[in-house]
Design a protein around this nucleic acid. Structure first.
Lengths: 245, 245
DNA sequence: CGGTTACATTGATTTATAGCAAGGACTCGA
DNA sequence: TCGAGTCCTTGCTATAAATCAATGTAACCG
């Protein structure tokens, strides 16, 4: 994401910190507040503390006490776990509409920091929990999101345990393409990759070198073209067959 | 699990198929019905269709329409996904108290079959969903279980993506030991492994040979002793440090 | 009891990916 | 415009685990 875009995002988000900021939120339909009706919606809106983060800012970490939950509005957040010796596993990338705070029994369980500049709706964990307890539709929504996350996590287990490097990369690209499509409303052959090679590696259980080599081999094989901060898909059928092979 | 035990389980379970079968259920506190009070509890009990399966029976598979949800009462079930070419990833082992049917938006998403003889509470998916919708405590419980599953899934991602064979095996054993401890109420240095080596391999993202070699090397190193259908832990501290390394 | 079967072990060899090291490309700030 | 920093790429080598191939072991059954 370039500086102009980043600045625009931050400005727009601050600009809408007025009474009715959520009304025109393009992320709303995708997010946890999507199914709420007028009164309830306003009630949740009152709990919202909009926040912005520059790139590489920490939202929270494994150990920190759980004070807030978030809905991402703009930007990309990486969620990861660290082993004592420094090895890192990224358990997911949060995109606009994603909710952070589903599994917070004791501690967040993972670290979260921004890959790009990020704007988010922040809620006090306790206030949000109270609200959810008083609104079954919200509880239901949270449960649906949790089970969806669970299904994604199981897919990721298959990927990590039983697929080779090329399949991992192909699958990663296709999944990301579809997630962006859901957010923007249109499929693009250019897939934005705001995260670095090391992040992709730590998500797929590979090293940075293997990610780089595999992407460049795919480019050599005319499956895709590597562009700044992303790739452009040339041979979608072949990529998809690798992804689901 | 030997034949005598298996027979006993099946007999006991059938024997309690009377009006008040759930009252003395030793699995109840761990399971989805744990938090229900008298009236609600009886209501759910009326929906229950107790079922038993011999070892290696199919409970459901990836494609089958979702008709039922289950709570496991006795025995062990493996949950797995298959790739088109036959590669398999086991996404979890369901033990007594575990609930099958959290993530069933479209299709179960995975296959489930019994490793040992199994007895379970079976509910119609629709009846169960209706019941949950009318009982917020149940909805809450389902959500808690879903987020717990999600946390486990994220741990498994770390294991699959960033740990070597020895760490995987050690972690698997320790986690299983703790799960059995929660179910039986006491920690045992003998860890029951009702699943075969191939199942362990498909759970940990290894081959059967690597599982066998690693277990036997651990035995040679006096970390544990291999016994029929399980292992006995000799050096718990060293095993635990491998598991969390 | 011998034969069949399923599962586990063990050894020899291969291979995909990790690890190491060097160089390249781009950004940013002085 | 230079230099420092960061990220990415590429070649070479090492290695953990996969693969291939026997062999071992125990349960079961006619």
């Amino acid at each position: 994401m370039d500086q102009t875009t980043t600045a625009a995002i931050l400005r727009d988000h601050v600009a809408c910190e007025c009474a009715d900021m959520c009304r025109h939120c393009e992320t709303r339909a995708l997010s946890v507040c999507g199914p709420l009706e007028s009164d309830d919606f306003l009630g949740l809106q009152r709990l919202n503390h909009p926040v912005t983060f520059p790139a590489r800012a920490v939202l929270f970490n494994q150990e920190s006490p759980v004070r807030h939950v978030f809905t991402i509005v703009h930007g990309v957040v990486r969620l990861y776990k660290l082993l004592p010796d420094g090895r890192r596993q990224i358990v997911g990338f949060a995109l606009p509409g994603d909710f952070l705070g589903l599994a917070l029994a004791d501690g967040y369980g993972f670290c979260a920091d921004s890959v790009t500049a990020v704007s988010a709706c922040r809620f006090s964990r306790d206030h949000f929990a109270d609200f959810a307890d008083r609104h079954p539709a919200m509880l239901r929504r949270l449960h649906d999101m949790a089970t969806h996350e669970l299904a994604l996590a199981q897919q990721q287990m298959v990927l990590l345990g039983r697929r080779d490097a090329e399949e991992k990369i192909a699958s990663f690209l296709i999944v990301l393409q579809k997630r962006w499509a859901r957010i923007t409303g249109k499929i693009s052959v250019t897939i934005d990759l705001p995260m670095g090679r090391q992040d992709i590696a730590d998500f797929l259980g590979l090293t940075i070198e293997t990610v780089s080599r595999t992407l460049n081999r795919m480019a050599r094989d005319r499956l895709l073209v590597i562009v700044p901060d992303g790739v452009r898909v040339l041979d979608a059928p072949r990529l998809e067959s690798l992804a689901s092979a």
